[in-house]
Design a protein around this nucleic acid. Structure first.
Ligand SMILES: [Zn+2]
Ligand SMILES: [Zn+2]
Ligand SMILES: [Zn+2]
Ligand SMILES: [Zn+2]
Lengths: 158, 158
DNA sequence: CTCGTTATGTTATTTCATAACGCTGCGGTT
DNA sequence: AACCGCAGCGTTATGAAATAACATAACGAG
């Protein structure tokens, strides 16, 4: 990330040390509450996402997976990502083919992103879809999920 | 498309005959107004999109390209899609890796889609992004484009 | 302990998209 | 007309993203 400009991507610095451990522990706790299992591959992929400064591609995760530089096999990472998305610990950004850890407090929320086309930063925000839901209702659709990705320039890159 | 259910995908029937010719002619006219060129490959891909009942994958277009069953080469189709998107004649649906012709009157609009997870239909609608623009402004982002894809069930599949 | 279920390991393949290079045809300039 | 610059195209090859399929292992209820 950040290949397109010289701006530092500091809006979402990766976690490390105690903050990282704390975030992983919170996910662990949430899993125990819902009888889900934060297994080693799932935990590892979550760590990698949390440590990153920005969205990570699946093959970035695959390459970074092993502590000793050994890559993972693709299904390992894709399965972990599927789990993390299902539980709301991570989100896929469709327009980037990339993944980010969830930065919003509280699970069960709907995600939306502001994506900087210059530095690659992706900021999650709490969306208000009421206008879109109204449009869907008019069309007779029963909406289950909504993906919203706004692309432009972040404050640092404007 | 429509592989997941038995419902007919009639919400967006493909164009044929005079209606197809008319839509292509309208695109042609619009190109001439803006000094753009609707070259044979671009015209052919636009036709294929307009004829289709639903979103088409890039390799569906590649396979269907030649009148005699000869496929196109991938860059031919991807270049045409890039052009059609740029002029607003087609849209990419990120969550499907697929493409649809623009169904909205008048160019320069912002696109959004209601996507049926059962029959695969994708209905374009005119979105109201005012709430999201407000959120972006608060965050200091300058938004250039917005992608919105709502997934659920269409009236026929509910 | 036994069995059904969930998760992982592994190999291979499929699907999606772009890089790179040279050729062609059009429009503007002299 | 001859030249040039460039958008568009054809072609070959490769890169990137995601999944199919099947075997094995770990778990947890009864
Ligand atoms: Zn989130
Ligand atoms: Zn930026
Ligand atoms: Zn449109
Ligand atoms: Zn449907």
């Amino acid at each position: 990330m950040g290949a397109e400009c010289h701006h530092t991507e500091s809006a979402q610095p990766g976690l490390e040390g105690a903050a990282l451990a704390s975030a992983v522990a919170a996910a662990q706790a949430q899993c125990e509450r819902t009888r889900e299992r934060l297994t080693p591959p799932r935990r590892r992929v979550l760590e990698l996402l949390l440590e990153s400064d920005g969205p990570m591609k699946a093959y970035d995760l695959i390459a970074a997976y092993g502590a000793d530089g050994e890559p993972a096999k693709p299904p390992t990472v894709y399965r972990a990502l599927e789990f993390l998305e299902r539980l709301g610990f991570a989100h896929r950004i469709e327009s980037l083919n990339a993944y980010v850890p969830c930065r919003m407090e509280g699970a069960g929320h709907r995600a939306a992103f502001l994506i900087c086309e210059c530095c690659g930063a992706a900021q999650e925000f709490e969306p208000d879809f009421s206008a879109q839901f109204a449009a869907a209702k008019t069309a007779g659709y029963a909406v289950r999920t909504v993906t919203l990705e706004a692309r432009g320039l972040c404050p640092a890159c404007r």
